[in-house]
């Protein structure tokens, strides 16, 4: 059985809990902007340390990565779904991931979003007012730690596939790195990759005609396991929530709209 269907959606099996056995199409992402130059320019505005990166280098690296995915029969179909290029500057300092999210990444997402949509709001709400600093860790089974480690010494580029796990509940999203084949540079999506993708693609969740998926930062775990960090649109606005992942006491949320992403990445090379 293939790992991904023709829409690039992870094929579920009986061990996963999903909203539906097929990928639903009610919630839509905004267009995939296949213009790395544009994305790089937007990213540079908010990540000054990327100033020296040349567009052709960024494009070349993305193309290498795309070809590597394309040549892998297991992962090739994922290219049929929408994906968003991103670039992450080197993070030299080892900083608490919650603090990094709260103090650095979210403000940059806000700035990028408001730059593109000046009349709209970006809001952050954590249910029960629980803070992020010192409260967030990385899921041990997400392989996200490897991305963070590589990012401590290197600029990272990659593709964020937001809809790969749409409709999966959070525990089933997390299981994917155990079940999917090995690939050099893959992880369950978390903060650095999703925030960078949103900084370069601030239009991602803003759709005039339809509602968009809710992007879970599944690689991150709040100390309070009932909370999942996520991005969502609210009409024309963008919001970040620390939201309960419980449908009912003892029953995990399983929503047609909530999605977990997969990120494919590589170290930027000249």
């Amino acid at each position: 059985m293939p790992y991904f269907n023709e829409l690039g959606w992870r094929c579920p099996n009986s061990s996963y809990r999903t909203y539906s056995n097929s990928k639903t199409n009610y919630y839509k992402l905004n267009k995939f902007v296949n213009k790395p130059r544009e994305i790089l320019e937007k990213s540079k505005k908010h990540f000054p340390s990327l100033q020296d990166i040349e567009s052709k280098v960024f494009e070349k690296n993305l193309e290498e990565l795309r070809k590597r995915i394309e040549s892998n029969e297991d992962f090739k179909p994922i290219l049929n779904s929408k994906y968003y290029p991103f670039i992450i500057p080197i993070n030299y300092k080892k900083i608490d991931i919650g603090e990094q999210l709260e103090k650095e990444l979210l403000p940059l997402v806000e700035r990028s979003f408001k730059n593109e949509f000046p009349d709209c709001h970006f809001k952050i709400t954590i249910q029960n007012n629980l803070p992020l600093c010192k409260k967030i860790s990385i899921s041990q089974i997400s392989r996200y730690e490897e991305l963070v480690k590589k990012n401590n010494k290197n600029v990272i580029c990659g593709f964020y596939f937001p809809e790969a796990l749409i409709g999966y509940d959070i525990p089933s999203q997390k299981e994917q790195m155990r079940d999917l084949p090995q690939f050099d540079g893959i992880c369950i999506s978390g903060a650095l990759d999703i925030c960078s993708a949103l900084i370069g693609n601030p239009q991602m969740l803003i759709h005039k005609e339809t509602y968009s998926p809710i992007l879970c930062l599944t690689a991150l775990e709040h100390q309070d396991k009932r909370i999942t960090c996520l991005f969502k649109s609210y009409g024309p606005h963008l919001e970040f929530w620390g939201l309960s992942n419980q449908l009912l006491p003892g029953i995990d949320q399983v929503s047609e709209q909530w999605t977990g992403g997969l990120s494919f990445y590589k170290v930027m090379s000249n």
Binding site: K103, E104, P107, I124, T125, I126, L132
Partner: peptide
């Protein structure tokens, strides 16, 4: 850079 003044993670869940 801190989160903009209009947003505080600590106290905005309830208006």
């Amino acid at each position: 850079m801190a989160i903009s003044d209009s947003i505080t993670v600590e106290n905005n869940a309830i208006s």
